[in-house]
Amino acid sequence: MSNKILDIKNLNAFYQNHQILHDVTLNFFSNKATAIMGPSGCGKTTFIRCINRMHELDPKAKVTGEIILHNQNTLDMDSILVRRKIGMVFQRANPFPTMSIYDNVLAGYKLNGIKKSRDEKDEIVQDSLEKAGLWHEVKDFLHRKGTLLSGGQQQRLCIARSLAMKTEILLLDEPTSALDPYATANIEELIEELKKDVTIIIVTHNMSQAARVTDYTAFLYEGKLIEFGETEKLFTVPKHKMTEEYLAGRFG
């Protein structure tokens, strides 16, 4: 069994009077990829947005429970610090339109006022872009606008931007839902590589994607965790009847 990195206990999430997540308890293991799967509206996105405290951005939202990272409950930590440790990549690529590719990668440092020397910056940019599998495509025009890249490249730029902050966990919220099959395959290959450096939690609609790239899968239905386990087992011999029906395409 690998090391636990994130320990989630009795997580409940609310929006106004509506409860979105009910007592979700599960663990994430370091340097593994975990898929969060389930039908639309089951709370997948809310779940990962709780992990990096994005859910509470809306004053009407509330979260209770524990999310333990290195023996510390992130829900008690300063949300800004949590977000620097747990990066997030969104459904639609969102590079900063006013910044070059180079500055986009360094955005986390620049915007937080963390000074770096020229050499350090060059190193971070190259390292992050290499990890995101984008270096060879963009190394000759790092000072062009990030928004001029293709959709798949933009998404990898966003991954590089998160990696640059030396995050430990990377949350991917349906990162390929707006991409073509070729770019999707690229990102999927990348996830395999990224596991060397970070722990990956990926929300996906696409069951075959979950089966291809992840080690563990959590199946959520109506805000409740129905089943969690190793991807291979969950897909071949699901313990729960609902999981089986979902995988067979009978609902969702």
């Binding site: 990096n52 994005m54 951005l57 800004i80 610090l81 949590v82 977000r83 620097r84 990066g87 997030m88 969104f90 969102n94 590079p95 900063f96 339109p97 955005a107 986390g108 915007l111 937080n112 966003c158 931007r161 998160s162 902050m165």
Partner: peptide, 10 residues
């Protein structure tokens, strides 16, 4: 765009 920035801990 706002979320991208906030998610970087800004």
């Amino acid at each position: 765009l706002k979320e991208a920035s906030l998610a970087l801990g800004v």
